[in-house]
Design a protein around this nucleic acid. Structure first.
Length: 481
RNA sequence: CGGGGCGUAGCGCAGUCCGGUAGCGCGCUUGGUUUGGGACCAAGAGGUCCCGGGUUCGAAUCCCGGCGCCCCGACCA
């Protein structure tokens, strides 16, 4: 089984390490179909936990789930000029069905804006019908040249939110609200700190007026675009004639947004926290938060230890902890430790004869130390431990990000940084496409975001790092996934 | 699509240069002994050597042609 092969170290080969971690933790596997992946139960459980958390947040902000079809008439995609130009090369198209050539080819959705606006046009008549706040959980297909487990696969799972509003201000505010939701989720659940901001025109979603994004820094100092939220203006409304009657009696196109995060987040989780032993999973998203490993020699010890272990199992379960008892026999405790560590289980409770007689367990933190805990204190103590670990992961990731961020870079520093260690490079930017392209050609780095105020440097840079003309904004560069 | 690597048991590999009838480690099955950081003994099961041609008495091995996967680049969440 792949689960027992050695893991390549991060220092040796980060890509190989990443693949090894995914395999070792049994999160996913390659599929018989090129570019596609199979998400295994341990990986899917993380996604379910992510879904649960996010879905709750979407509902709190007034969104409702719906489902739109997988197949989109090809002509729909063509209605918005930028959109079709952006996605056409990446689409899979069905031309036959039921053994017959189709009258109109059907595109397997690369995203659902077009079919959703076609429907919204039917559903929206008046400003009283607005806003419409929709979300859907689904799979999408984008034909990729080069794929990587979770980070970029031909088919992937995501949620896509689509909202329609009476005013541009309201739509813009919605896009910003969701960006905040994403950020909160990434930090509080994935323990993955992100910088938020606006994308440049070159990096903008095809068909959007403005694209907001959350960017995280992975352990190899490359940036991961973890989520995007788009203000679409009236682009799709115009393409699909999605109009409504205003309070004043006039007709106007709706203003809209769309936003999404995908199973790519699992890749972000892995590359943010994991180590050379295997997966490190933040407790809030860990399929198994606690594993109990019983230790015994004689039958008498076995009975006593297992009885205690079962008691701990039940009490933790009642307390809402995701816990399993590893009672497999014929496997040494040490072997179990390695296995569960590779799978990223945050806490291990060892219970042996000595512990039973002393009314305690040995609590080992993933990647940390071991210390005894009284059995009576476990219900409270485990919760506290998991919370602490969750916070420590976020803090450690934040520290790592800051240590690998350089502010106020010069042209030469930017080049050196991207040739060398990588990371986030903050600098002044004239906003010109020429400079953006030149920087990309010279360094392979792209503008990840024009950062939101709280991430900006003090004082603000005054000159463009590349052309030395006055800066119109600050930008964050990095090599990206 | 370019550059690099690889394809032999479930997994990791050796064997390929120099052709001779397929091997190692791990895992798996059965039995026994073990169990506080990757247990041991014994007996087993498991193979279209990526595919198709060719050379040869004989091909995992040599020749020709395909296919697939991984990594690095160009496209992208």
């Amino acid at each position: 089984m792949s689960s027992e092969q050695a893991i390549t170290t991060r220092a040796t080969d980060f890509s190989a390490w990443y693949n090894d971690v995914v395999m070792r933790a049994e999160l996913a596997d390659y599929s018989p179909v090129r570019g596609c992946m199979v998400i295994r139960p341990r990986g899917y459980r993380i996604w379910e936990l992510m879904q649960q958390a996010l879905d709750g947040m979407f509902k709190e902000t007034g969104h409702e789930n719906a489902y739109f079809p997988l197949f989109i008439p090809q002509s729909f995609l063509a209605k918005e000029a930028d959109h079709v130009e952006g996605f056409a090369p990446q689409t899979a198209v069905v031309t036959r069905g039921g053994g017959k050539e189709l009258e109109e080819p059907l595109v397997v959705r690369p995203t659902s804006e077009t079919i959703i606006y076609a429907m919204l046009s039917k559903w929206i008549q008046s400003y009283r019908d607005l806003p419409v706040l929709l979300n859907q959980w689904c799979n999408i297909v984008r034909w990729e040249m080069r794929t990587r487990l979770f980070l970029r696969t031909t088919e992937f799972l995501w949620q896509e939110g689509h909202t329609a509003h009476a005013t541009g201000e309201e739509a813009e505010a919605e896009a910003r609200t969701i960006l905040g939701v994403y950020r909160r989720f990434m930090e509080e659940w994935i323990a993955m700190p992100v910088i938020t901001g606006v994308k440049t025109d070159a990096e903008r979603f095809a068909g959007a007026v403005r694209t907001y994004a959350c960017e995280a820094l992975m352990q190899d100092n490359r940036a991961l675009q973890a989520g995007t939220s788009h203000f679409l203006g009236q682009n799709f409304a115009k393409a699909f004639e999605t109009k409504y009657q205003t309070a004043a009696g006039g007709l106007d196109y709706v203003w809209s947004t769309s936003w999404g995060v995908s199973t790519r987040l699992i890749g972000g989780l892995i590359m943010t926290h994991s180590d050379d032993v295997g997966l490190v999973c933040p407790p809030r998203l860990a399929p198994v938060q606690v594993v109990i490993v019983p230790i015994f020699k004689t039958d008498t010890e076995r009975d006593a230890v297992l009885q205690t272990a079962r008691g701990v199992l039940e009490s933790l379960k009642k307390g809402g902890v995701r816990v399993v008892l590893d009672h497999r026999e014929g496997m040494k405790p040490g072997a179990k430790y390695y296995e569960w560590e590779g799978r990223g289980v945050p806490v291990r409770l060892e219970i042996g004869p000595r512990d039973v007689s002393q009314g305690q367990t040995m609590l080992a933190k993933r990647g940390g130390s071991k210390s005894p805990m009284r059995i009576g204190e476990l219900e409270v103590g485990i919760r506290a431990t998991l919370d602490t670990m969750q916070n420590e992961l976020l803090a450690a990731a934040k520290t790592r990000r800051e240590q690998n961020s350089v502010r106020g870079v010069s042209r030469q520093q930017l080049i050196d940084l991207m040739e060398g260690p990588g990371g986030f490079a903050y600098g002044g930017f004239c906003g010109g496409e020429k400079c953006e392209t030149a920087i990309k050609d010279a360094t392979k780095a792209t503008v990840r975001v024009l950062p939101d105020p709280e991430f900006r440097s003090q004082p603000a840079p005054t000159r463009c790092v590349w052309c030395d003309q006055p800066a119109t904004t600050e930008a964050v560069w990095a090599k990206a996934y």
